[in-house]
């Protein structure tokens, strides 16, 4: 661990100004960043603590949606009655992640910023294109049992570890940021990126930008949503595969649907092909399986993670069957 300076931001502008210094990073709950500092993966010169900013509220939006402050702790997010009633898959996803102690600390903004848990990324004695661009990706030939099957590149096969981000992607959430060039909005589905030839970049955030909120649009459909997380251990484990889905069936046909996968790619994977395949068709296991196949046709599993294709298909079918009955 390298020495670093600690600063506490008084307001958003001050935070953005403080992080302009080379090597500076924002500090939320620290549940991932501090671990990575201990491992030598992250070596910030300054930590700008943003947890005292007034970003810890969940507030109604005019359109009937909700604005989640970036500083809202994961535990508070999952416990909020409005989230539980109107976006149950989000509450379930947050509760499926980490442990109670970690959720008490982790923030909404920080959750979106967490790094991959790829074993090579976390071990500075090994090559890793995400950590040290150009050094190579040993995971492709080495251990990748729980790494990506969708959207990976020759440079990186890491997965995004967030549970929370999966229903956010399904529900068309929008990330609100402020930065040196002002404020802007980034659709959640475009917030995380695929690795391509620049795996060192997890997100489309520009330098110095601070997440201030995540907006959930009004989505009545989401009141009937589930998050299904498959893992070998019953708790405190990252997903092998997860699914967030919302489904509305009318007269036996799929009236509307939202689907995103976790654990499959470098970003939460919005399953648009599956959604398109489902709209208007008769709801049932065969249609659900066909929709899964439509999405997973693009899967390019590695030597040891082909099981994830099967698992994602099953998890989606199980979840949609549950939602439709």
């Amino acid at each position: 661990m390298r020495p670093f300076r600690y600063e506490r931001a008084a307001d958003e502008g001050g935070a953005v100004a403080a992080v302009a210094e080379p090597g500076a990073k924002f500090l939320g709950g620290g549940t991932n960043l501090v671990d990575l500092m201990r491992l030598g993966v992250e070596t910030p010169s300054v930590l700008v603590d943003v947890t005292r900013l007034p970003l810890d509220r969940i507030e109604p939006l005019d359109d009937g949606g909700l604005r989640i402050g970036a500083g809202v702790r994961n535990s508070d997010l999952a416990a909020d009655p409005r989230i539980r009633d109107r976006y149950p898959a989000l509450a379930e996803a947050v509760l499926a992640g980490a442990s109670g102690q970690l959720r008490n600390l982790a923030t909404t903004g920080g959750n979106l910023m967490q790094r991959t848990r790829c074993p090579y990324f976390q071990d500075v004695t090994t090559p890793c294109n995400k950590r040290e661009p150009g050094t190579g990706c040993p995971a492709r030939e080495g251990e990748h049992t729980n790494l990506a099957i969708l959207g990976h590149s020759e440079h990186c096969v890491a997965t995004n570890p967030s549970d929370m981000a999966v229903p956010l992607a399904a529900f068309d959430a929008v990330v609100r940021v402020v930065g040196p060039e002002g404020a802007r909005e980034i659709p959640l589905a475009e917030f995380h990126r695929l690795p391509g030839d620049a795996p060192e970049r997890d997100t489309t955030l520009r330098k110095g930008e601070l997440i201030v909120a995540v907006d959930l649009p009004r989505l009545p459909l989401a009141a009937r949503s589930r998050y299904r997380k498959v893992r070998e251990r019953a708790s405190f484990a990252f997903a092998l595969v997860s699914v967030a889905a919302a489904l509305e069936v009318a007269d036996g046909r799929v009236a509307d649907v939202r689907i995103a996968f976790g654990g499959l790619a470098h970003k939460p994977w919005r399953a648009s092909a599956a959604e398109d395949a489902l709209r208007g068709v008769a709801a049932g296991p065969e249609a659900f399986a066909a929709a899964a196949d439509a999405e997973l046709a693009a899967a390019r599993p590695l030597r040891d993670n082909g099981y994830k294709v099967d698992l994602a298909r099953t998890a989606l079918v199980q979840t949609l069957v549950e939602l439709s009955t």
Binding site: D123, T125, T126, P138, E141, G142, E143
Partner: peptide, 9 residues
């Protein structure tokens, strides 16, 4: 990891 000769997890 046989290539690196390492225990990874």
């Amino acid at each position: 990891d046989p290539g690196l000769g390492a225990f990874m997890n």
